[in-house]
Design a binder for these strands. Structure first.
Lengths: 214, 214
DNA sequence: TGTTTAATATTTATTGATTGACAAAAAAGG
DNA sequence: CCTTTTTTGTCAATCAATAAATATTAAACA
């Protein structure tokens, strides 16, 4: 059964569908057509149908999509029907912010540890966790089931930490370090490069200000 | 003079080029060919040349690219040859983390104000700023030149704040709120949806674990 | 219960992005 | 100063993603 490879562009749209469907649910809307959703989301109805059909036939001709059913399906597709244990490497401002950000635990992403190498941070309370010495990372990984590691450390240390993670069988890395990690094929990395993001914004701003634009 | 429209895909790659060129500079490397860079960045040499040629002819046949020159050109293209005044709306964990994150100011992005509506946060020191009442946002914008507003508030308030920003002529919004903002065409928005990002990661993890994958 | 309408699933067409190929230009080396 | 090598800039071809069109199905309703 030769299934199409799902492109990353499609995958990146799924959370957005999920969010809109959640909003519809919250508003008590039980059915929606690709046409209506298209208007709300400002993408073509064709793309919505095409995207969804990559994963299955969730709609009903003449009726549309059942919001709750579709919501649950996308939840499953995104792997949100299970729990994930996460650790944070780097208890700086960003690491702390992520640890304290409530939205993740609501979705099943649970922080079970936070690490730093700074002696001033070790022992500090962050949320309901205590910052541990990164020297203990290796043994911690040995004794705990960790699904995802968040990397919020300077790029100079990122590669070394990554090899410890990989060695201990971590399969998911959420990388906030401003560096491209090299990992084996079976380790998945999702990058959040905030500096890249603000640069993209400044590019757009500069473009906007150029003459002959309107 | 009919110039090609620059696609967003190309723009998103520019910060990465910029980062690699910066690293080369740091390592005292003064010239590089698209072929060498290709190996380092794991993208095709053709794409590198094609991307760069969207903006100008920066290389020299038989020689390659002068690292410093190219670095400076991309800096200009990205609009990093100027300063940006930024404010943060929402002094929660994320807002504070961004305010304290040193990398932005190094690149010319300067925070000049932070706002919140929570009475417990107003007056609090964040970096070298004091959290102001969001009620004062309107008058602050009137008296200060602000290029970019960072939105790190719950989605319920995002639309209302956005209209205050737009009304006061803000042209750049860096949106961390988990909602799609509707703004006039001359206002540019760059979204950072962390929840979307972690969902993409969980998707990839689920895929990885499926049978018939290796 | 048949007919019309709505809306999906899916095929086809179009547009866009990436890769490959090659001529032109400059550097390097004798 | 001529020849070879390197490497760009750019054109052409391929590949991928999006949009449009159509056939099919089920609901709605008389």
């Amino acid at each position: 059964m030769e299934e199409d490879k799902i492109s990353i562009a499609v995958v990146k749209r799924l959370p957005r569908y999920y969010r809109y469907l959640g909003d519809l649910l919250d508003n008590g809307i039980t059915r929606i057509s690709s046409g209506e959703l298209s208007k709300k989301m400002h993408i073509t109805a064709s793309q919505i149908r095409q995207d969804l059909n990559k994963f299955g036939r969730f709609g009903q001709r003449g009726y549309g999509y059942d919001v709750e059913l579709l919501y649950d399906e996308i939840k499953k597709i995104l792997g949100l029907d299970r729990k994930y244990n996460m650790i944070i490497i780097g208890a700086g401002n960003l690491g702390q912010a992520l640890a304290n950000y409530g939205n993740f635990s609501r979705r099943g992403f649970k922080f079970i540890g936070i690490f730093d190498k700074d002696i001033n941070k070790i022992g500090m309370k962050v949320g309901d966790m205590t910052v541990q010495d990164v020297e203990e990372l290796d043994s911690f990984l040995n004794g705990n089931s960790v699904d995802i590691a968040v990397l919020s450390i300077p790029k100079t240390n990122a590669s070394q930490i990554t090899s410890i993670l990989v060695k201990n069988g971590i399969k998911g890395i959420w990388n906030y370090s401003h560096i491209d990690l090299r990992t084996p094929d079976d380790v998945v990395v999702e990058n959040v490069h905030l500096t890249d993001s603000v640069m993209t914004l400044s590019y757009k701003l500069s473009e906007r200000e150029k003459p002959n634009k309107d």
